[in-house]
Nucleic acid binder design. Structure first.
Lengths: 232, 232
DNA sequence: GACGTTTTAGACAATGGCGTCTAGTTTTAC
DNA sequence: GTAAAACTAGACGCCATTGTCTAAAACGTC
């Protein structure tokens, strides 16, 4: 149903257990919980979507709540791995900064924020956040928290190189993310998935504004910031 | 329970009906629907919160769904009136633009986005959006849609005066809103309400960045943009 | 103070979901 | 090939909820 590739599951997270059925259940449950919310989701529907008998679900998860928690943890693990991967692709090179940041923003939106898992988590956090505070506090830390922290550090390095001029790195990081989402927020809220073209346009708008605000201004000779930085 | 002032209700929206009880029911239902979602909310709980018998609810609203729709429409009416009022306070004067925009951003966050009604609507849109597409399409248009359109026009006027330098007004409008929310998004998502101090700081960060990107640059004499604009 | 309307409290049937149980079947492992 | 484990289908009790109904009480108005 989803995009779960190998039956062996991913790296070494939680319990990957008796693969096939278990994964099928997790995916189906994620789907149904996301559409109907915790209260609205019925075990029978999850079983039907997973092509599994109800008893099998209860064999793996003691009760509805156990399943719910497992689903959220599973999706969070995938999302964290993805976020790590995307953060690793942050452009280090100062030359062609605009293109580098734009592609980074595209990847961030496409794989972490507008993608299935990202929408799932945000939706569930908002829906059931009060009921499971600890689960969602950990989401907050590992998701948006980690993103801001990491991005802040990455921006600081660029600022240190002299490519960017930033007074408050945390604020700049949050603003980068906010700008990157500005044009897509509404689509994402409604469950629509942006096309590659829309992703690119949104990222370009965001980075242009971000660099107008934080980019190193052209020096007196009128050289663009990258060259000016290289020239010292 | 909420902040509904006069028993006569607001201006001339929908049916304000047999005031007292009806409003009490609407407020209670909004509260419970927001916390539990449509499926999780029980009529009995709503009745208890409203200090009303269950039958009274059924006297006013044929069934649960009717009540839900009425609640959403009621909140949307309040929110629209508030948005209109906030938009009317957009700073027209070019002098002290930074302060003017900052105060505007504070009002926008405080009264339209981070407030009770704003959070309620965003949450319900995300939770039950698929079930009631028409209701939430109208939210999209009257809420974020109207905000972007109006803000875009207001920014265009400032640009026309030469105070701002903007190529795409719609994009700039969305970015303004996104920046204004950047620091508060996470709190709002979790139901916390920002303090006045936090509101002010967030708005100040947002406007500073917005003006760095779109503000008219100081002229050769080094005069700040406002004076430069006046001096022609 | 009497009448019509509104509200109340609670009983009520019907529905549907959760979680358990059982008996039979399939799959896996050795 | 056989034994153990996992899975299936369906029945079952239990409980919460919806929406209806009724008889009594409160309310407001004339």
């Amino acid at each position: 149903m989803k995009d779960r590739m190998t039956p062996a599951g991913m790296a070494g997270h939680t319990q990957r257990g008796q693969c096939a059925k278990r994964m099928s259940i997790l995916d189906a449950a994620a789907d149904v919980f996301c559409r109907q919310g915790f209260a609205g989701a019925s075990i029978d529907e999850i079983a039907a979507v997973a092509c599994v008998s109800r008893q099998t679900i209860y064999n793996h998860y003691r009760e509805k709540e156990t399943l719910f928690v497992a689903v959220v943890e599973d999706v969070m693990n995938r999302a964290n791995a993805m976020l790590f991967s995307v953060l690793s692709s942050f452009p280090e090179k100062a030359d062609n900064l605009e293109d580098g940041l734009t592609e980074f923003a595209v990847r961030l939106n496409k794989n972490c924020i507008c993608n299935h898992d990202g929408k799932f988590l945000r939706k569930l956090v908002q829906t059931e956040g009060e009921r499971y505070p600890h689960l969602f506090e950990s989401w907050r830390q590992q998701g948006p928290g980690k993103l801001t922290t990491a991005l802040s550090a990455l921006l600081a390095r660029l600022a240190h190189k002299g490519v960017l001029v930033i007074d408050d790195f945390d604020v700049a990081a949050r603003q980068f993310v906010a700008l990157a989402n500005a044009d897509l927020q509404m689509m994402t809220l409604f469950g629509e998935t942006p096309t590659d073209e829309e992703l690119d346009k949104a990222a370009r708008n965001a980075v242009r504004t971000f660099l107008k605000a934080y980019g190193r201004p052209a020096d007196k000779a009128g050289r663009p910031p990258e060259l000016a930085a290289i020239a010292g």
